[in-house]
Write a protein that binds this DNA or RNA. Structure first.
Lengths: 203, 203
DNA sequence: AAATATTTTAAACAAATGTTTAAATTTTTT
DNA sequence: AAAAAATTTAAACATTTGTTTAAAATATTT
């Protein structure tokens, strides 16, 4: 197994991501980051100019890591059922591999979103094949007619929220991280089943 | 209309809640709070001893404001369908009146939850009538058998997550706050319908 | 009304924090 | 090998920030 040697810059960036995701911008100090990188504060600024710039770079990546897969899968050319199963499966795998990601992204976006603004514009203007697809299926009479924005939001909620409330769930249900992940794996079936059962039984 | 005169202590606490909820502990300064209260930093510490103590007091209240209604309604003595409708309705009304509440509570609970720990213990050990009720209905054959922890989590997710991602939703769908709240009101029907449709169509 | 307690203000302090400087070390280029 | 460039280190700097002090103003009690 070839171990790719990480540059100092990469080490610092990885450390920064770890600390920012764990504690958020406001609770993170430059010294925190330097220590986690076994480095020093001067090097952090040498490579990234400032805490703010370093944060922006990491936030931008995390934002993309979160929303790019969503857009990609929802715009896939797949039948509805397969798409929903794939979406839930892949998102849960992603979030298991980076469980702090959504809490970080959404918490840094609160308050009259100073930090973002631009990111949204670059990211999301692409058309939404998923909503179109739902409309088509409804037109064909395969699923019920309803406000599909609500369906999409519920899908996102059921996938993402458990990771946002991970600590609460783990404490309430007394779960180890492993057990929590198994609980999430169960959702790969439970969520699509709920969505599809609802869609297929017209009101 | 009688205008109850607020004490300095109350003014400062209200200001602190506003700022903490908007920016989180780490991004809030004592001076922030003092300014929002049209007061000064010495008074903040005069009444609350420290930023940390003031925060703890507010977090404790917010934690209760979030989870007490959940426990109360889910333990209500109501038939399943009525309970689910009531739960969604009341939670959405609560969150509309305090939309930053869940983001605040969950974001301050992340990382190996230093600040909480104790709160969980005081709060949640009460039995969960909702899960028992689901088991009963399943035993009677009225709803499908499944892991009801997943149902409960999905219910929470669909109610709470939209407020956590409020800014994202407002930007993506170009909504004013009023429009966003109308979108949330729609969920008072959409969410119970989805849950109940799923439960009533056994697999 | 005098004495006492409480509240408020302005200023100061100490520690923490983001950033920079300048020298030392290492790496790369000539 | 010498020169130049890039990286690393330790220290210092300037702000910001949480907290405290001491005096002034106000309210309460005697």
């Amino acid at each position: 197994m070839i171990k790719h040697e990480l540059s100092t810059e990469e080490i610092i960036k990885d450390a920064a991501k770890k600390v920012f995701l764990e504690k958020g911008f406001g609770n993170t100090t430059t010294r925190d980051i330097a220590e986690h990188a076994s480095s020093n504060i001067a090097l952090v600024n040498y490579y990234f100019r400032s805490k703010e710039k370093l944060f922006q770079e990491i936030f931008r990546e995390c934002f993309a890591d979160t929303f790019a897969p969503i857009a990609r899968i929802l715009n896939d050319d797949l039948p509805l059922e397969a798409k929903i199963y794939k979406f839930v499966d892949q998102m849960i795998e992603l979030l298991k591999s980076d469980p702090m990601l959504p809490m970080f992204v959404f918490s840094e976006m609160r308050g009259e979103n100073s930090k973002i603004g631009s990111l949204m514009a670059e990211m999301h203007p692409k058309e939404n094949r998923f909503l179109l697809q739902l409309e088509e299926e409804a037109a064909k009479g395969n699923i019920r007619k309803t406000n599909f924005d609500q369906i999409e939001l519920s899908l996102m909620s059921m996938v993402i929220f458990p990771f946002i409330s991970m600590n609460m769930i783990k404490m309430k249900q007394n779960l180890t991280t492993e057990e929590f992940y198994r609980f999430m794996d169960e959702r790969k079936k439970a969520i699509p089943e709920m969505i599809l059962t609802y869609l297929r039984h017209r009101g």
